[in-house]
Design a protein around this nucleic acid. Structure first.
Lengths: 349, 349
DNA sequence: GGGCTTTTTAATAGCGCTAACATCATTTTG
DNA sequence: CAAAATGATGTTAGCGCTATTAAAAAGCCC
């Protein structure tokens, strides 16, 4: 008992097959949801799987599939909260769908990005998931395309004409948040923009502006630049709050900046939401870590990562069969989360 | 060219061997740094590897090694910043050392933890990395031990008598930070404790108290409970700042709580560091995201994860050979990072 | 330089899984 | 009722790599 057999500790397909009284191949079919297995057989196999606690060996699978099912993920360093959520989602999806994730890090420099993409391609991935900043790099996408690797952009504002995309409707979400503020009676509303090189920033701004124009009586937008960092949010909020006629609400393009705005408000002795409402975007862990908790838009980051994984897997499979590729643009639902940081406009109750 | 060959896109060992004019096995030896290869041969192989851009296929490797080299990582949801740094470090290490990481998520409930450990064991891992909260779960460690899986605790306060550990010296680090504050002239210093179920919290507190007692003239500690969340830091700071004789400096057991303290100070109209110094711990991304940037202790999270990976790999290899296991306790260096949030005691200049 | 150990290299057999083809039962049909 | 068309399952041959064993080359003694 104590002597560790070389065994990996593992139940293999063979064991399952024997237990279920079928051949190894049948088990494989069941595990991969291949049609053409009698229901009764399928159930028997499932039973054996449960009984033995079998779980397929990802390494063997990836090997046998000869790289199909190996997919790459490129990341640099977006907001830390975003990254871990994203990784978790991707990891989850990988486990579920039996894919093998190859994760590559790079910084934002174009060289580093190219190098990482090169490594991914050399590693023989069938597809690559490109989260927000990289999804907008022409070079990266061109390199991938040339190598015949499926690329999928996650979290961009627009879909590109040359890549599949998984994203949320940033425009609509910004619209909803703005409406929420307007319904609370706010008319002077500050908006803090996100990093200019990301199309999602643009969509959020457009959504805000569009909804502002719909307000009746008319609302008054005050737009300040920002770059998705806490500090830029803080500074933008300082600028907004030192105006002669400061806004009664601030809508930041992400939670980090909203947290910065919160800090700026507190620093000036303003009560949130008594004197000023603050809204964020993304619903990162930070949103519930600050006080008061942020009203924000829940972006289903983990689900987007998972969807991206599934999509890239499916596409890479399809691509090898036929060449009929239509671009997919999958939109995941967002949600307005109202918490304690937004309230009625001051002096309105 | 356009037709995708079934090829994984990959250069295999076979190609390298042919290029270098040696056998496949020799290449394997070189790749694994196995002794007993003539230097000239080794160089020839390395040359071929470079020339062809070969990189070994982790899946095949893991498969052939029959699970050795497959190592598990359990995580729940510590501070988001911590997680991504940790994952990145582990992922990096895995790539370098050719290990295959199996990442399992669980929440903090004991059941969920057991289930995750079970999955890991069933997956045939040779070792498991247990970051902070799980590293202190007797059940988890017992289960792993029973399955003959090497466990390694990361980021605990003490080493346990039954597990290898990779950690930093929390006690010494807290001591240094406290000394830093004392040297700035602070004598009334607030301390915000971390979650009570983590031994690192205790070490940090002890380090603080020890250094306080050394101060000349004597210093005055004010200890408040906290649980590593932003909110608990905010609340603890509120309590400290509403005292009749409030502290001139607050040392929080992590950056999240320090950020909370910062918010509380701003809310009361205090200038940091003019009126109040605030210090954190960990140097998570948050530390530089807030304003002013936090003086903190840099905990080499990524390096710790990498070290843990290496250690668990090596141990699992050794264990299968002999049974002579001595417990390893690897201490990684930390660093006091002085930024803008701490300064001379008010009215001292 | 023969017999011997010591390096160093080559050959073979899997690791757990899947793709492609082969083999059986069942139907369906001329 | 034989022949072809379906299912449903079993067989075989690898995927890229590492252990293990066998073989060859190189050193060493007297």
């Amino acid at each position: 008992m104590s002597r560790t057999k070389k065994r990996t500790g593992g139940v293999t397909m063979d064991h399952v097959a024997r237990e279920a009284g079928v051949s190894l191949m049948t088990v494989s079919r069941v595990m991969n949801n291949v049609p053409g297995v009698k229901d009764s057989t399928r159930e028997a196999v499932m039973g054996a799987v449960k009984a033995l606690g079998y779980s397929p060996n990802a390494a063997a699978r990836s090997l046998a599939r000869n790289g199909a099912g190996r997919i790459g993920l490129l990341y640099s360093n977006p907001s830390a909260g975003y990254l871990s959520q994203f990784l978790v989602g991707a990891l989850d999806g990988a486990q579920t769908s039996g894919a093998l994730l190859v994760i590559e890090k790079c910084d934002t420099s174009s060289d580093s990005e190219s190098a990482a993409i090169g490594r991914l391609i050399a590693g023989g991935v069938a597809g690559v998931i490109l989260p927000a900043p990289h999804a907008e790099s022409d070079r990266a996408i061109a390199a991938l395309r040339e190598a015949g690797v499926v690329a999928i952009a996650v979290g961009t504002g627009h879909p590109r004409p040359d890549t599949h995309a998984v994203r949320m409707d940033d425009f609509a979400a910004a619209t909803e948040m703005t409406r929420h503020l307007i319904e609370l009676g706010h008319r002077r509303i500050g908006f803090i923009k996100g990093a200019v090189n990301q199309t999602a920033s643009v969509e959020r701004l457009l959504g805000f502006e569009t909804e502002i124009r719909r307000a009746e009586p008319p609302a008054d937008p005050l737009v300040e630049p920002g770059d998705f960092t806490y500090r830029s949010g803080f500074e933008a909020a300082e600028r907004l709050l030192t105006l002669d006629d400061p806004p009664t609400a601030i809508f930041a393009s992400n939670d980090d900046m909203a947290a910065g705005a919160l800090a700026a408000a507190h620093r000036r002795g303003l009560d949130v939401p008594g004197d000023l409402s603050v809204a964020g975007f993304d619903d990162t862990p930070l949103a519930t870590a600050v006080w008061p908790e942020l009203t924000t838009i829940r972006q289903p980051v983990a689900r987007m990562a998972e969807a991206a994984l599934r999509l890239v897997l499916q596409e890479s499979r399809d691509q090898s069969r036929r060449d009929a590729r239509s671009l997919i643009d999958q939109l995941l639902p967002h949600q307005l989360i109202v918490r304690a940081s937004t309230g009625q406009v001051p002096g309105n109750s």
